[in-house]
Design a protein around this nucleic acid. Structure first.
Length: 950
RNA sequence: GCUCAAGUGGCGGAAUUGGUAGACGCGCUGGAUUCAAAAUCCAGUUCCCUCGGGAGUGUGGGUUCGAUUCCCACCUUGAGUACCA
């Protein structure tokens, strides 16, 4: 007697894989290699729910499949273990975040192990481990020691830049750096003192220290990157965010904007994800135009105040429609150009707008406000004097922080002109702008515009740019929305910067003395003086004579200096971890040249789309940088990327009659005015019946509540699909599923739920179908007396071979296309057919076990062993599809005409090629299609398709 | 507002170089087995119907011998982004 005892089987094989290091990847083989990666998890205290493993299961199926196909597969896993929740827990409890993190990781590992993943755990990485963040610090130093040459479009060592400065100054340098950098000659450079030189170099370094306007979250006590803010509040916690100027480390990611954009073309990612990154980078092509500023309307050179306002416009063709210039309230020229009469008004307006938070400003979009500066800008062609206004619809952080107002061509300019009674000049042919602006481009023809009248808008744009260049008042310009990434966080639980400050200038600690390990602090909060938590550490100064960390009392600014108090953001460690897996134990390099050369980049990366503008962009940026500097051999980290869809929860609700302590079953709820209250899904069975007693215990405030049931006496809840989360009481734990149905059932069911990339609700109700399938599969191999294992060596029947090869074909295609959901169906059909055929043929059943192994590895291993094999099934070659088994037994021939027509026709067995051609030509539908036309050629692909060309 | 994705039975979903729509599973109905239940097995299950058939893949058009699939317009839902000049 032998039942499908999944718990025993799974425990047994999980131990076997661990003990035999079955999935250990080799760094040096002659076989082809393949790198399958999951986005490593942040180990939160809540543990895993059934949604988390979805992507891991998919990647595991693919990794196992690739092993069967003879690849040396790298399939590692680790933890993104620096992060906010552990720190906030530390603030509340005083427990060191490292401890919390270790506990959480242990729990994660336990949960992951139960699902039977083929991870190579010998390569585990943890970003919070000093052996790991040593190299995060090292990469930071490399960024600091690099600049970006625009001519070569690559990062170069800063030492080369210094050489150029010494020889030629900075006049010939085509670098992307801070725009304000003044020109200097070689002689001037050599005469600068060290402090001056260092501060100039900071303007070129890829990691640089600068006073920047940042998103400050007072509640979290830290700055946030743009991608960490959602709807004007912090992504984590939902706290308000304000703009604030602070001295911060930043990354010059904007240097890479163009490459990050164009190289998207080379990647096998989904279009929607590429689009998200394109939008985020936000390239727009247009013109930079300079307007001379005059103190009044009169056309006299004496009124020119010696300043120009630069604007950026994507529509230089509309320049003759400009009727005003608008500046952002924070624009640096505001003070300089405002006339005496307008000073008071302007100051008042700026004060008002400064008070508004980012959020208020967003909420207030429809409300057009502004104030006149008293100054005028000269139109470069008409010499007309356009009034200069200040308006808060202009953003200081985009373009130049100033726009030319063209009411006819832009709705915001139009609204502004209407409100302040500025002229609206129609510069479009046959277009009505009396009600609203005309923003379409299409085939617009320009009118009333001097030398560009009657031209289509694209040509007009080019002509205007040409003319501006002649005047020296403008040129073609490409603008990006992507801004440099702030890299400092005022937190404890992150990588310390390997930086100390000598006379206020940052100095890097040499690699030899890394890692610079996080110091101990008694509290994880900022200091009373507003310094980050590291300000509380006593041992936090750098002794340059002994190259060690010492007590900060010893700071003398001669040999002992203060260390940086900020830490790195969460994305630092996750931007390069995929390289570390290649050589995780290396103490001399972040990964050896050989390992990097062997594995190259990640072949398949699976993870959530929420990282589109964060992790995935930063990783690409760092990889390109490391590539430029020759540290890695690849320009892009992730060749193919799949976003798994989220698994949603099915929340359960009980209906409560408003104002009463009475709960009513969902079928009766329409009769009353009710409100819905979340009930824990574990208290509800698959028929949506609530366990009333358990519910009362769970929510004691309903202990005495009255329950209005259905007529049959049951109490039903209503269901709604929501995100799976603890607060919605709809979390399903994978451990429970493994316990009740087994890991193989969980794995197959998660795949069966629907397409990998699609969001879908979890419903435990349907799991029995998949579980039954595995039981049937088991029975297929146990047809002996009393359910004993039984196979025979008889040759396979034609029928069974057909079933088998149909299945091989479909499953292979499915795996290659990541349609894991349909191959589960294919397996079900195969098992049903083989059962009906009473197939006991060893040969067929062996192949079937291998086919199923990537999906349900435990049962496959067990069956494989019963079939008499010693080796793990994971070493077995995947079955190969053989067309002949389908052809020989098939009477139906799908027919395709020149790629346009397909139908099935009944043909006798074993026809020759010529006979098939004749039959096809005589076929009624063929005749109908051809309608007397004579085809040039008939192509016959055995058993599959007939193509008629002509 | 803009960008993208998706709309198919009671439910999750199959089916694309355009060729029998609804595979597979859940649920439901009936039957077998059982003292009974669970489990298992078998049959049925898009809708309408006068049992001959008719309608049908969000809506309306178009291309085609033929459209869930391609094209146009619209509606709905979801995701991202948002005063980006």
């Amino acid at each position: 007697m032998s039942n499908y005892n999944f718990n025993d089987i799974e425990t047994k094989w999980q131990e076997y894989w661990a003990n035999n290091k079955t999935f250990k990847a080799n760094n040096n083989t002659t076989e082809p290699n393949y790198y399958v990666l999951d986005m490593f998890p942040y180990p939160s205290g809540a543990g895993l729910h059934v949604g988390h493993p979805l992507g891991y299961i998919a990647s595991d199926i693919y990794a196992r499949y690739k092993r069967h196909k003879g690849f040396n597969v790298l399939h590692p896993q680790g933890y993104d273990s620096f992060g906010l929740p552990a720190e906030q827990y530390a603030i509340q409890t005083g427990q060191h975040p490292a401890k919390t993190t270790d506990v959480n990781i242990a729990r994660y590992r336990e949960q992951l192990d139960k699902i039977g993943f083929s991870f190579d755990w010998s390569r585990e990485v943890r970003t919070s481990n000093p052996d790991y963040y040593k190299w995060t610090q090292w990469i930071f130093i490399q960024l600091f020691e690099s600049w970006y040459c625009k001519t070569l479009e690559k990062a170069l060592p800063i030492s080369e830049l210094i050489n150029i400065f010494e020889e030629e100054g900075n006049i010939g340098i085509n670098a992307k750096c801070d725009a304000q950098q003044a020109e200097f000659s070689a002689k001037q450079w050599n005469d600068f003192d060290d402090v001056k030189k260092q501060s100039i170099l900071l303007n070129y370094r890829l990691a640089y220290l600068a006073e920047t306007e940042v998103n400050w979250c007072p509640k979290l006590g830290t700055v946030l990157a743009n991608d960490e803010i959602v709807n004007g509040v912090s992504e984590r916690g939902g706290y308000p965010v304000v703009r604030k100027k602070m001295m911060q480390w930043s990354m010059r990611i904007s240097n890479y904007a163009d490459r990050l954009l164009t190289d998207l073309e080379t990647l096998d990612w989904s279009d929607s994800l590429k689009d998200t990154q394109r939008n985020w980078i936000g390239k727009s092509v247009g013109a930079a135009i300079k307007f001379k500023v005059f103190s009044n309307k009169k056309d006299a050179q004496s009124n020119y105040i010696g300043a120009t306002i630069g604007v950026f416009s994507t529509r230089p063709d509309t320049i003759f429609g400009a009727s005003f210039i608008a500046l952002a309230p924070e624009h640096e020229l505001v003070q300089k150009i405002t006339t005496i009469e307008q000073r008071f008004e302007v100051a008042k307006y700026i004060e008002e707008t400064a008070k508004k938070s980012e959020r208020d400003r967003m909420a207030d979009v429809k409300n057009t406000t502004g104030v006149f500066t008293g100054a005028y800008a000269e139109h470069p062609f008409t010499k007309e004097k356009l009034p200069i206004w200040i308006a808060d619809y202009v953003l200081v952080s985009y373009g130049t922080g100033a726009v030319m107002g063209v009411p006819a061509g832009d709705q915001r300019d139009y609204d502004f002109a209407k409100k302040f009674h500025l002229p609206i000049k129609n510069i479009f042919k046959d277009v009505d702008v009396s009600e609203k602006a005309y923003e379409e481009k299409g085939n617009t023809i320009i009118a009333n515009s001097d030398f560009i009248s009657e031209m289509p808008h694209q040509i007009a744009s080019e002509k205007v740019i040409e003319a501006l260049e002649k005047l020296g008042q403008g040129k073609k310009k490409i603008n990006y929305r992507l801004r440099d990434a702030v890299f400092s966080r005022q937190r404890y639980w992150g990588e310390p910067f390997p930086v100390y400050y000598k006379h206020g200038l940052p100095q890097m600690i040499d690699l030899k003395y890394l890692p610079l390990v996080l110091p101990k602090v008694e509290k994880y909060l900022p200091t009373e003086t507003g310094e980050p938590p590291l300000g509380r550490a006593d041992n936090w100064a750098w002794d340059t004579r002994h190259n060690i960390v010492v007590n900060k009392d010893l700071i003398d600014d001669i040999t002992v200096f203060p260390l940086e108090l900020n830490t790195m953001p969460g994305w630092a460690g996750s931007s390069w971890y995929f390289f570390r897996y290649m050589d995780p134990k290396n103490t001399r390099e972040f990964a050896s040249k050989e390992a990097l050369e062997y594995w190259k980049n990640v072949d398949l990366y699976i993870g959530g789309s929420e990282h589109a503008t964060g992790h995935l962009l930063y990783s690409r940026f760092w990889t390109k940088f490391l590539f430029d500097r020759g540290f890695v051999p690849v320009n892009e980290p992730f060749k193919k990327l799949i976003n798994q869809g989220m698994i949603l929860g099915e929340s359960a609700f009980v209906h409560r009659i408003e104002g009463e302590n009475t709960l009513v079953s969902s079928g009766q709820a329409k009769e009353y005015k009710t409100q819905k209250i979340h009930a824990d899904v574990s208290l509800v069975n698959t028929q949506n019946e609530l366990d009333i007693e358990a519910f009362k215990n769970w929510r004691p405030e309903f202990k005495d509540a009255e329950f209005i049931t259905e007529e049959d006496g049951t109490f039903k809840v209503s269901r709604e699909v929501e995100k799976m989360s603890k607060s919605k009481y709809n979390v399903v734990n994978p451990d429970d599923i493994c316990e009740q149905y087994g890991a193989d059932t969980l794995r197959m069911y998660e795949m069966f739920l629907g397409p990998l990339e699609q969001a879908k609700p979890w419903s435990t109700a349907g799991i029995t179908g998949v579980h039954n399938f595995l039981k049937k599969l088991w029975r297929l191999y146990h047809t002996g007396e009393n359910g004993a294992f039984f196979v025979n060596d008889n040759p396979a029947s034609k029928e069974s071979l057909k079933t088998l090869h149909k299945t091989i074909k479909k499953v292979t295609e499915d795996i290659e296309n990541f349609s894991f959901n349909t191959s589960v169906s294919t397996f079900m059909i195969a098992v049903n057919e083989l059962t009906a055929q009473k197939c006991n043929c060893k040969e067929v059943l062996e192949s079937l076990a291998v086919l199923i192994a990537p999906y349900a590895p435990h049962i496959a291993e067990e069956l494989w062993k019963k079939l008499g094999h010693e080796q793990s099934i994971s070493t077995v070659v995947f079955p190969v599809f053989n067309n002949q088994y389908l052809v020989e037994d098939s009477k139906e021939y799908p027919v395709s005409f020149n790629g346009k027509m397909r139908f099935k026709m009944e043909l006798p067995l074993s026809l020759t090629k010529d006979e098939i051609e004749t039959a096809v030509m005589a076929h009624e539908k063929t005749q109908h299609y051809l309608q007397g036309r004579i085809p040039k050629k008939v192509i016959v692909v055995p058993g599959k398709i007939v193509n008629i060309v002509g």
